[in-house]
Nucleic acid binder design. Structure first.
Length: 417
RNA sequence: GGAGGGUUGCCAGAGUGGUAAUGGAGCGGCUUGCUAAGCCGUGACGAUGAAUAGUCGUCCACAGGUUCAAAUCCUGUACCCUCCGCCA
């Protein structure tokens, strides 16, 4: 959410940003509604002031008569104000955030900028298999029974791969805990306000699972439960930034992705993630530094795992509505003969914290909305694609990344007779 | 699932129809002068304003209702606590 003051003072910027993000907004309508809202507020305040003054002592019959009149007039104005606020908030909730100047302007993924590449692509002196083939041969992934039991995009991870999955999650979780991030096991069942606060609603409602008739939804990422952790609170400046590493199950309907990535472990309804979330001061330079820190963390993880990756600076057309700057980190996946997205690192400015009412008290005693940031640390099973395919051997076995061997207790996955 | 109790500012806590006591913390200021103490100020949000000035309004979990007037009375909802039942 942008503030009305900001919108009024930066009309052209906001219009330009929405255009670059491919979103339609009607700022003139928003400003007209805000004018109307202010007028109604002023009118109600005058009447309330009169009522309050009359209420200071026992009223005379004339004052009671006048009071009845005020009550009627107020009721009319307040009803108008409710409608006005509803319309205004509805339009306002669709206004996307304004990207930073260094963000390239572009229509879609083709205009993202590659800014880094790491690691040598594996050279196989045999025909490499996809993770699906490897998973079937070594009895590590059961997609058929997954679909039978869970439905489309369902899966079982099995045998050594199930153990590897846990080891990866733990390795990454622990790595960030050691860096001073506060560990959290975060809920996956969350209320609507959390989705709205993070900017998932109103734009991506079709991608979220709703539970029965309650105010209960499944989270698509721990960002949606951890960012609202401090909602409605005022934090102390000296306690910022708050850095979290959170584990949670993640659920996505993938409603807009029918027919895309329908095979294997790439696009799933249910997966697990270690997420980094930061609540920081309202300071863009500090936010840029923290953004780089989050980026370094996820790159270190891929380097520990010795997986080749590249980093993209996302263009305006391929970033989400709340974001002002975003890096995607993509990991090499031999069967795709391409890098596939495994991490996504964003600065949100005060867009989410304004919706969630997360503020902090500054040294001069005034309050200010915080900034929020988040980046994936590890998403599994997707990352398993890269591990299985990059670590496959000529004899059909799969070696294990060194950093995990101690944790997991075996060095390779081999075909069982 | 059943029974009862509760929700007031950063915290504690008074307040049963006339518009939020009091104590403490933190922060700021002043004074004294040194293992610290005392005094003063300080809730959030909104309208108006150049203003972090003043004035006014709103906020006692949330949403409605009754009333000239609601923290206070009524209804609904959420959450917390205690006990019983069930349970990984």
């Amino acid at each position: 959410m942008l503030s009305l003051d900001y919108i009024r003072n930066n009309k052209d910027k906001v219009i330009e940003a929405a255009k670059n993000k491919g979103r339609e907004i009607d700022l003139n309508k928003i400003i007209a509604l805000d004018d109307q809202r202010r007028k109604l507020i002023q009118q109600t305040q005058i009447l309330r002031e009169e009522r309050n003054k009359a209420g200071k002592s026992k009223p005379s019959p004339q004052v009671i008569e006048r009071g009845k009149k005020i009550k009627e007039e107020l009721k009319k104005l307040e009803d108008q104000l409710v409608i006005c606020n509803q319309q205004l908030n509805n339009l306002l909730s669709y206004v996307p955030n304004v990207p930073l100047p260094e963000v390239p302007i572009g229509k879609d993924a083709s205009e993202n900028k590659e800014i880094k590449k790491w690691g040598d692509l594996p050279k196989f002196d045999f025909k490499p298999k996809s993770h699906i083939e490897l998973g079937e041969k070594l009895d590590l992934i059961d997609l058929e029974r997954g679909a039978k039991v869970s439905g489309f995009r369902g899966y079982f991870l099995k045998n050594q791969l199930a153990t590897l999955h846990f080891a990866l999650l733990f390795y990454v979780f622990n790595k960030l805990v050691k860096k001073g991030y506060t560990p959290l096991i975060a809920p996956a069942v969350i209320k609507g306000f959390a989705h709205f606060g993070c900017g998932q609603f109103p734009w991506s409602e079709q991608d979220v699972y709703k539970l029965n008739d309650d105010d209960a939804y499944l989270a698509g990422t721990a960002e949606q439960s951890v960012t609202p952790y401090y909602s409605g609170e005022i934090l102390n400046e000296k306690d910022l930034p708050k850095k979290f590493v959170a584990f949670s199950p993640c659920f996505r309907k993938e409603a807009g992705a029918y027919g895309k990535d329908t095979k294997g472990l790439y696009r799933l309804h249910e997966f697990w993630k270690i997420e980094q979330v930061i609540i920081a001061k309202n300071d863009i330079e500090e936010a840029r530094k923290l953004h780089e820190e989050l980026q370094k963390n996820c790159e270190e993880i891929l380097e520990d795992l010795k997986l080749p990756y590249r980093v993209l600076l996302m263009c305006t057309g391929d970033m989400g509505e709340p974001q002002i700057k975003k890096y995607d980190t993509e990991t090499w996946m031999p069967s795709r003969e391409a890098y596939g997205e495994t991490m996504s690192n964003s600065i949100m400015g005060d867009f989410q914290t304004r919706r969630l009412k997360i503020k902090y008290r500054k040294k001069d005693n005034s309050t200010e909305y915080c900034f929020s940031l988040n980046n994936t640390a590890l998403a599994s099973p997707r990352i398993l694609i890269a591990i299985l395919e990059n670590y496959q051997q000529k004899d059909g076995s799969i070696s294990i990344p060194k950093v995990l061997v101690q944790l997991i207790g075996f060095k390779e996955i081999i075909l069982k007779k």
